[in-house]
Design a protein around this nucleic acid. Sequence first.
RNA 1: GCCCCGGUAGCCCAGCGGUAGAGGCAGUGGUCUCAAACACCAUCCAGCGUGGGUUCGAAUCCCACCCGGGGCACCA
Length: 963
Amino acid sequence: MSETTPAAAEAAATEPFRYGATLAAEIESRWQDIWEKEGTFNAPNPAGALADPAAGDVVSKPHSFIMDMFPYPSGAGLHVGHPLGYIATDVYARYQRMTGHNVLHTLGYDAFGLPAEQHAVATGQHPRITTEAAMANMRQQLRRLGLGHDPRRSIATIDPEYYRWTQWIFLQIFNSWYDQEAGEGGKARPIAELIAQFESGEREVPGGGVWAELSAAEREELLGEYRLAYSKEVPVNWCPGLGTVLANEEVTADGRSERGNFPVFKSNLRQWMMRITAYSDRLIADLDLLDWPEAIKLQQRNWIGRSEGARVDFAVGSGSAITVFTTRPDTLFGATYMVLAPEHALVDSIVPAAWPAETHEDWKGGAATPAEAVAAYRAEAAAKSDVERQVDAKVKTGVFTGAYATNPVSGEPVPVFVADYVLMGYGTGAIMAVPAHDHRDFAFARAFALPMRCVVQPTDGRTDDPSTWDDAFDTYDSVIVNSAHDDLSLDGLSVVEAKAAATEWLAGQGIGEGTVNYRLRDWLFSRQRYWGEPFPIVYDADGVMHALPESMLPVEVPVVEDYSPHTYDPFDSTSSPKTPLSRNEDWVNVELDLGDGVQTYRRETNTMPNWAGSCWYELRYIDPANGEKVVDPANEQYWLGPTAQKPGGGADLYVGGAEHAVLHLLYARFWHKVLHDLGHVSSVEPFHKLFNQGMITADVYRDERGFPVPAAEVEESGDGRYFWNGEAVKREAGKMGKSLKNAVAPDEIADEYGADTLRLYEMSMGPLDVSRPWDTRAVVGSYRFLQRLWRNIVSEATGELVVTEEEPDEATLRALHKAIDGIRGDMAGLRFNTAVAKAIELNNFLVKRGSTPRSVAEQIVLMVAPLAPHIAEELWRRLGHDGTLTYTDYPVADPAYAVAEAVTCVIQIKGKVKARLEVSPAITDAELEALAMADPAVVAAIGDAPVRKVIARAPKLVNIVTG
RNA sequence: GCCCCGGUAGCCCAGCGGUAGAGGCAGUGGUCUCAAACACCAUCCAGCGUGGGUUCGAAUCCCACCCGGGGCACCA
């Protein structure tokens, strides 16, 4: 496509006053320069360096903080799918400016992370060089689109002045603990307050020690159990192929790394964690404050996975007990066996020396003693990667431990198994199995010939004998049966009632209590990478951890020769991570005075994950140059503070892809809440309204071998078949990208038609939240619209204005105000596709009219301005206005003209259209009915049939029911 | 397997109880042109995924199913 000479450019060469690619390019670059030079989109702050005395009383002006999801600057350059959201937020931001809002809209770069590092390793260039080049390239590409960003606020996460605050927030989190007793639902408090409680004896030191007598190492160990950021040996996701550990959220359902698709293994390693689980309840509850798509809220709720249930102790052996978590205490009488996770600590202590008499052969796993059987099974489970465990999930495996526990309600002995379908990381790592009413337990019980007991009355026609069942019966909507003994009877109670009754009884017996359990785990926060934020943490000669004081921030990423990660064979589960930063002894060993005189310390060599920088960037957009504080409270309050419309506060609009539903959005909410608890921000949520834009897809053409061929070179034959170089190829839908050879760059489209055309086309393709295919051929439609708009106002022959000075007639006013009314609503509701259609409709009206009154021209220019700002600015100037239209009021519809003067009323007989009438929109039902019944066509159609009923819905419809 | 979202003209999409069509692309015919491209004018095209139901009336509401896209998936 790019090889052919743009036809429009040729035309422009011969017709210099015509709106073609050449004229569009000239207009666009000129206005982009003006906006930049005049700082048109600079938003004044209430306080600090970005406050503007000339802006007047900023605080009393309504604000609108509009954000795009933090882009990662890819070295590959943009395709037309990337800017979809950026154009949409720009259109909305421009509309907001024209309706009196102080608009904060900018775009920064999330520039730390794995891809940049991998790219650097591949090309041999330092990640800072490649990343900064990619950012410059992306800025250049985006500038051409005319996005109205405040350039003073465009931060980058790799800037030391930015990441010093990322490290500062880390220190806030590190130096905090979650006080469950504080406020409603608890809150984060400074760790110093906890230490004071231990010192004074107000709070008992766990383990019974005395604080003053503990060593520094012991104190730090203890505080690690409280800190919201802590370092601990935990089972983590180790990915040898990437050479780093990963958060649960970065591992796919089939046990592979989201990035790179390498196998991931469970490994016990000392790593940094964030205690996000302390916020589980608040992260769920505060979703109610947010204007987010329900689907995203649902995904967050599911990810956090709150379940209410009970902890129950099952006595085993003499004196010890296995504690299980269950959501179904109502089915306690149906618990016929138990299962421990292979890693469960109690396994060793309950295993007897020999198999009990009459132990089922299938339960022994072929071993001579229970200890052998358990050891063999554990070894087998440990060697499995998550992938294998996933693949094997359909078949239930396990072995009998040889031990029996006692069902606390039935008093019956229940065998205790070890099986990997029970996960150590959830609940207590142990379950009571109720095979009659749980699918997994049912499958296991069938495999091991375990007894089942039906305790919930089946309601689907099956008998109450589980031996005849094909699967468990797990409905909640039924009543409990077979569940009674001397002082507890659940029989006849509903499931919900029985849960409460059973929990209450257990608590009374001291063997259980109601509890809430979460699927969410603490967030693994360290990575073994070079290209990330270093931790502001050092270790002294005794290995005791010290946080650096604020004055020593930022801890800069050292400039080194060798920044490559230590990667391994992707399948080598025995390997262990090594940090790239540890190679650099000069940097690792550091002389510092942390209050005890100058001493040698070793730096923490892990780095923070990619998510760290994007967890708080909304705050820095607000106050990018603040050297004293993360954000000035006056500015935070103004832009993010809670209001009647947004009870939790947060940015007014946040647009981005749905793929960040749980990762970024959950982490950012968590950090924001910590900062709120510690008094740094007034808002409790970072993003009030979230909008997920759809994807732009593109046709992919594959040859016989299935390889993609360059989509731009494919030709369509008349009969709907496709050819490339004469060879038949197959068409399918796909993502846009280099690998599928179907990427279209925004620059190509801007070259041929101008950026305004590209913006308009992207906005008119369909609703913003729906994915839709790119069609280069269709772009010309948006171009023609702009040409017609231009022609309605400026002569193509002379470049002179052609608007008339007449007063618009009534029909024109009606068309105009109908358009204003509709477009305003569409703009406010982010329905840009229909807004464009209405603008085209009005413009087409003006074309047919033959001339355009000046007042109408001005209003249509203003209406189109958010969508196609360059041509609008140019026409506005040519219409005789000085300066930018950015802050000119958006047209307001006159209600007198916004309704049609006459409407067509349809007359139906039994739902079939028989006649039409032109009536006033103000007509009453009775008048309309009378008119309809008098209509000759209607009279004829009714004939002799009796009229049973007449439905009149003024002014559009009358339906006559006969017969 | 479970949970979301979507199926309207050849294509992208409006309409979301009341005439199936706002807008765009493509197609067809014409104007312009020596021809063509561009542009302009005109025009063709679907009964709304399928099957039931509610209603005077259903693309629109309800139920079931089919197809496409996304998410979750031994979480006790």
